[in-house]
């Protein structure tokens, strides 16, 4: 499915002393198969934006088109099914007595038959790398933080959405846990063909994974493009309070020191090759 935002603005509590303009005039098209990362500081409107994509919030002005059709009231339930949204620290939404029941909550709300619910739950748990037989009957509250996070993700995947939105999925995990979760998302994108929208603070995590980046500053869309395009100008990002990924920063600094290296480099391996080339060391 394609999601298109046309001049979308959102104002919280209009007409009160607490009025906040959280989004201003956003134009954005998310194509089928996209991997979009939204980056921006605290309060820049990232969460507000993604909640528009599955109908939890409605634009104060502007329109949202799904596959070319404007979303109206009757379509919101349908959109929530097709666009899965995983909030930050999703383990905080677990509530059921067993892992199985928790993951089954979404499919049951869709009114699916028992057998289909079971199939979906088991499938979703496998997708996030958990064993349904082993964990299905455990209480979610006795599991480790990383496992709880996966179960919460499975709860959304069990709705079998076409688009998966994740708000800071790796926050608070150790480096291995973080890499595992992000790799899992990459796999869902690649193998299951899900459209992915990833909200993140970390340039490091998104630069080498996303196809496109959207940079939000104070509710406005400041930059949009491929990682190479967005990270071309380090100065501008720094002014927005957003850093460059470490490898990219290194390349910018080498360039500033007069070395001839490319700057669209985001992984350690690419950086190694570029530096070896710069030094004229033969590569194996």
């Amino acid at each position: 499915m394609q999601i298109k935002l046309e001049n979308v603005s959102h104002t919280y509590m209009p007409g009160t002393p607490f009025e906040t303009r959280a989004l201003i005039d956003i134009n954005l098209t998310i194509e089928q198969g996209e991997y979009l990362a939204i980056i921006g500081q605290t309060g820049s409107g990232k969460s507000t934006l993604v909640q528009h994509l599955n109908g939890l919030l409605k634009p104060t002005s502007g329109r949202i088109l799904i596959d070319g059709k404007e979303v109206d009231k009757t379509a919101y339930r349908e959109i929530r099914r097709r666009v899965g949204l995983i909030f930050q620290f999703p383990e905080q939404q677990l509530f059921a007595e067993t892992v199985f029941e928790d993951v089954a909550f979404g499919p049951k709300n869709l009114g699916l038959p028992e057998a289909e619910v079971r199939r979906r739950v088991e499938n979703a748990m496998l997708l996030v790398g958990l064993d349904p037989q082993e964990l299905g009957d455990r209480s979610p509250f006795t599991l480790s933080g990383g496992q709880m996070r996966r179960i919460a993700m499975a709860g959304v995947l069990a709705m079998e959405p076409e688009v998966l939105i994740l708000d800071e999925p790796a926050a608070g995990l150790d480096p291995r846990g973080k890499k595992e979760i992000l790799d899992q998302i990459d796999r869902l994108h690649r193998e299951e063909g899900l459209t992915v929208v990833l909200v993140s603070h970390s340039m490091e995590d998104v630069a080498s994974r996303a196809k496109h980046l959207l940079v939000l500053v104070d509710g406005r869309q400041k930059m949009y493009g491929t990682p190479a395009e967005v990270f071309r100008d380090g100065q501008e990002l720094a002014e927005m309070g957003l850093g460059l990924p470490q490898m990219c920063l290194l390349m910018h600094k080498l360039r500033a020191a007069g070395k001839d290296v490319p700057t669209d480099i985001f992984t350690v391996e690419d950086a190694r090759d570029a530096i070896l080339k710069m030094l004229g060391v033969p590569q194996t």
Binding site: P175, R176, G177, Q246, V268, A271, R272, I275
Partner: peptide, 23 residues
């Protein structure tokens, strides 16, 4: 560190890789 589930900062890993390549 990686065996323990930790990591090194990317720069440190890069420096290691470069040393391996003879820099």
């Amino acid at each position: 560190l990686r065996a323990l589930g930790l990591d090194t900062p990317p720069v440190v890993r890069l420096a290691q890789e470069l040393r391996l390549a003879g820099v």
